[in-house]
Design a protein around this nucleic acid. Structure first.
Lengths: 141, 141
DNA sequence: AAAAACTTGAGCAACTCACTAGACAAAATA
DNA sequence: TATTTTGTCTAGTGAGTTGCTCAAGTTTTT
């Protein structure tokens, strides 16, 4: 029941990028040094966030990364789903990546006891993370 | 952010055992067949639950497993912690297995933004799972 | 004594995680 | 235009975990 380093690093990197939002770009090594993250690994994370539309980048000498969405419009839930996949503790209660359980005898049944409990957990997690914005996240610094 | 098959199987097995609580014992193969769980794997799970004090077992011809605590006194949180370890999404917010982050620049700092958000998530998960009893779980069958 | 159960411990294939390496492409500067 | 400095892409890799299997016990009943 853990989040990966990827998510953790990604959030910490975004924290740095929030600090220069609207201003200058940050280079991978700056972020990596300040946040203590292996630079080549960080790169993969930044690229994933870029592909997801959160970051822009410029190559070459004065290149680097910058946020292209306001910190108020990015939630922790979004970031974690990009880097770690769905939030749901079991896939039969995922809203973003539902999958019927193969072996569960209640799969066919109208109501699965496990599903009910896990659904509540999923909702609780999503409720917090999908309402926690980067701005709120960054301000408690 | 997923629970393991171990937890899932464990909970489904306990569901069966709730059904005969106070009555007869259930054998591994009965549980395995009804719940579609590989029997040798299930065994490991049942033994872990036994060592944790939830189950008793009898060997030999009329042997099997039985719950020794009331379904009202067992929570999903307990079971998942036994089989999957701590609930906390990152270990620096775990109450049962706290560990300081090695690389986080905020580790020394009085307040870490990540820690605050993840702490909320942990509490939300624990709040649900530590109050969801097996009896409630079984009755929604 | 034999059979039917649980017990213990080891082993293993497949996968995931966290990271590394290297070739390549674009932008700026000299 | 050549060189340097950045990002981009793809592949690989070692360690650890997950989900299971196997085999050799031990205990209990018949």
């Amino acid at each position: 029941m853990k989040f990966s380093k990827k998510s953790e690093y990604g959030l910490r990197a975004l924290l740095e990028l929030c600090g220069t939002y609207g201003g200058r770009v940050l280079q991978r090594h700056e972020i990596a040094e300040r946040q203590n993250i292996p630079v080549e690994f960080l790169e993969q994370i930044l690229l994933a966030l870029k592909r997801a539309g959160l970051l822009a980048s410029r190559r070459g000498v004065r290149g680097g990364y910058a946020l292209i969405k306001s910190p108020e419009d990015i939630t922790l839930g979004q970031v974690i789903r990009i880097l770690d996949g769905p939030l749901a503790p079991i896939s039969c209660v995922s809203k973003t990546a539902y999958q019927k359980c193969a072996d569960c005898p209640y799969a066919a049944t109208p109501s699965c006891p496990l599903q009910q409990a896990m659904g509540e957990v999923r909702d609780a997690i999503a409720n917090i993370l999908d309402h926690y914005t980067l701005s709120r996240f960054a301000h408690s610094k």
